[in-house]
Design a protein around this nucleic acid. Structure first.
Length: 703
DNA sequence: TTAGGGTTAG
């Protein structure tokens, strides 16, 4: 049908309408006749359209429209001729339906509104007014229903509705908000007139998709066309500069917004707080926040998220208390941010309060906050609680599934992680690269190498997820755990890109565990070339030499470290008891309960030595060479555990956070401490969570 | 006239 149209320039609107059986979208004969460059052709009047005939094809085919042999209006005419009375009744009832739809939407009962709309669609042909379409658009946006958008839009076309600028914008918004950006772009391109609102909407849609550069391009076009824009546009564009991480661009927008201050700048301020923190300048973010005359919920949320992003979790929690005291209302964003901060701080008490607050304030069903809770409970060893939250979620997305799968995997429950992954596929959820990372790492932790290989092979074949460096690193770790170093090395050499540091680091760790000096040295040298200033690479090689008795080589590594001036930052661990964090450094003697703690450590060490514990001198850190015995015995995490054992009831799990990677000696010691004290111990270190229970650790084994 | 903007989870 569309081919003949492409060949003739002078086709008229009437001809097109006759061919397709319905009026063309957003066309009016008046506009067309006055502005058309090609007489008789509506499509060519807009100067932006380089190829009007391509647009004809796009607009019809891409919207999935098919010619209708019998326009609906004909049905009404036929009805009129045959039974005038009944038509009148129907018309009356359609007015009733329309007002009912509008009322339902006002009450946010979107699903019911769209169900009622089905009656109009079924009967066909009734004229629906702008106010009803407005309501239907809101319903589609509220439900993010692509099907709804298609239904409403097709009905509009089939009834010959001619929208004004307001309605055209609403229709565009409906497509943008439901993520139908290809259709939205087509509509935008075909619009006979655009205003600031039109442009703001399409730009915001592009930013939602992460198309920041395209958003900037359109912004500049818009600037040229209108020579004007309001604070709304600035708020949106500041978000784009945050997405690109361009501080200088963000600052330019900030100064433009200041120059044209137009009253309510709260939105701009909030966007600026977010932009400054995401671009690395928390001081500027704080400055904007301080200047806000009235700090609203979003402002508080943004600054809290900013502090959390910069690793100032405690400060973020203080801000949360300030926010609570200031009486500003909290929303689901607030709770999501707080739960994530609690995950970092290992604060079970605060997380529980946030969980309760979430439910109490009516956000108990929020997908983001619940996913944050699943992640929290998983990371703190409460898999059953995580599962409970997950099962109660009314809808789940790929992030929710990933959080729980990773939770099972990180706690050594690889089989269950795989089962969950399979259930996810059965429920029609499409896995992404994070899902595969979680499943592969679960296989690796639980030693399920065969299953790991199967999954690794099917990720690109079945779900078109191309393995990334982290997936390869995971497979190298998996092979390394099996002692298959040659295969691991072969995999590194086979990757279709330059091997990354993660991959060499996984091979190096595998070499340390399997005592392969030669390959370990090779991997370490690769790493030195790529990360000459990263201390931990030298430490692993140092430990390989130490544990294989190569003292001369070990001394050389220490010399290199000294020459480079590399030194380990003081390691610290902390534990929260009665809402108070207690921080310990290696050999720390500043705490008021030092005496009791040291006595406890001594007695624990004596006790575990009866169960076969032998200090592992082969994995010392480079800054503990002089008083190695003493310091090894009093590593910060051991002090934190002793403190916890003295000060908490028997049934409480000990939750320790460590700023560095836990050393293998402490890992081994904690396994035994957990066993003899019958206490659950969860240690979160710089690389992963270790959940010690009944003498085993969830990380599979120490790596 | 109405409409369009900012913050959250793996």
């Amino acid at each position: 049908m569309e081919i003949p149209l492409l060949r003739y320039q002078s086709i008229s609107l009437d001809q097109i309408q006759n061919s397709y059986g319905f009026p063309f979208p957003f066309a009016s004969n008046k506009v067309f006749r006055e502005k058309s460059l090609f007489p008789g052709c509506y499509f060519s009047f807009n100067k932006r359209w380089k190829n009007p005939f391509r647009i004809i094809k796009c607009s019809l085919m891409e919207q999935g429209l098919k010619p209708r042999p019998k326009p609906n209006k004909m049905n009404i005419e036929e009805l009129k001729e045959s039974d005038l009375g009944e038509t009148q009744i129907k018309k009356k009832s359609s007015v009733g339906i329309c007002s009912q739809i509008e009322k339902l939407v006002l009450n946010k009962r979107y699903t019911e509104a769209l169900e009622l709309f089905e009656i109009l669609e079924f009967e066909g042909g009734f004229d629906v007014g702008t106010s009803t379409y407005d309501a239907l658009v809101s319903a589609c946006i509220g439900l993010k229903s692509i099907r709804g958008v298609k239904r409403v839009f097709n009905y509009m076309l089939s009834t010959g509705f001619e929208p004004d600028q307001y309605m055209r914008n609403r229709v565009l918004l409906m497509h943008v908000k439901c993520g139908m950006m290809i259709d939205a772009r087509n509509l935008f391109n075909e619009m006979p007139e655009r205003n600031l609102v039109t442009c703001n909407m399409i730009i915001a849609g592009l930013i939602d998709l992460g198309e920041y550069l395209e958003a900037f391009r359109l912004f500049l076009d818009m600037w040229e066309e209108f020579s004007d824009c309001g604070s709304r546009t600035f708020a949106t564009m500041i978000r784009a500069s945050a997405g690109l991480g361009l501080l200088s661009v963000g600052k330019q927008l900030h100064s433009c917004a200041l120059k044209m201050r137009d009253g309510d700048d709260t939105f701009v301020s909030c966007a600026l707080i977010d932009m400054y923190s995401k671009c690395g300048s928390i001081e500027d973010a704080q400055g904007v926040f301080d200047e806000m005359p009235e700090k609203n919920t979003v402002g508080w949320n943004s600054i809290m998220a900013g502090y959390a992003l910069h690793g100032y979790s405690e400060e973020a929690l203080d801000l949360y208390h300030e926010m609570r005291d200031s009486g500003v209302k909290m929303d689901h964003f607030t709770f999501s941010i707080i739960i994530r901060i609690c995950t970092r701080l290992a604060s079970l008490e605060h997380a529980r309060q946030a969980h309760a607050g979430l439910v109490r304030n009516g956000f108990g069903l929020d997908i983001v906050a619940n996913t944050a809770l699943v992640d929290f409970y998983c990371k703190w060893g409460r898999i059953e609680d995580a599962r409970h939250v997950f099962d109660k979620m009314p809808c789940k997305n790929v992030i929710s599934w990933n959080a729980l799968i990773a939770g099972y995997g990180n706690h050594g429950r690889g089989e269950e992680a795989i089962e969950l992954f399979e259930q996810m596929l059965l429920e029609g959820m499409r896995p992404n690269h994070v899902t595969y990372l979680a499943v592969l790492s679960a296989c690796s932790h639980s030693g399920l190498s065969e299953r790991g290989w199967e999954i690794f092979h099917c990720m690109s074949r079945d779900h078109k997820v191309k393995p990334r460096a982290m997936h390869y690193a995971c497979m190298i770790e998996l092979l390394g755990r099996e002692g298959l170093l040659d295969e691991a090395f072969a995999l590194i050499r086979s990757v279709p890109f330059k091997p990354t540091t993660n991959m060499w680091a996984a091979l190096l760790t595998a070499c340390r565990v399997n005592g392969n000096l030669e390959l370990g040295k090779f991997a370490a040298e690769k790493l030195y070339g790529m990360e000459p200033e990263k201390l931990c690479n030298y430490v692993v090689l140092l430990n390989i030499y130490n544990s294989s008795g190569k003292l001369k080589e070990a001394a050389e590594v220490v010399q290199t470290l000294r020459r480079k001036g590399l030194r380990m930052l003081p390691v610290c661990s902390w534990i929260e008891v009665k809402k108070q964090p207690h921080v310990f450094f290696s050999g720390d003697k500043t705490h008021v309960q030092t005496k009791e703690m040291y006595e406890k450590v001594d007695s624990l060490m004596l006790e575990i030595s009866k169960h076969g514990y032998v200090p592992d001198k082969g994995t010392l850190l480079p800054d503990v060479d002089e008083q190695e015995q003493r310091v090894m015995k009093y590593h910060s995490e051991k002090l934190a555990i002793a403190f916890g054992l003295i000060n908490t009831p028997d049934w409480t799990p000990l939750q320790i956070v460590q700023s560095h990677r836990i050393c293998s000696d402490c890992h081994n010691a904690i396994k035994l401490i957990g066993m003899i004290t019958e206490r659950e111990i969860v240690v979160r270190d710089a690389s992963r969570f270790h959940h010690f229970k009944d003498g085993i650790c969830s990380c599979g084994d120490y790596w």
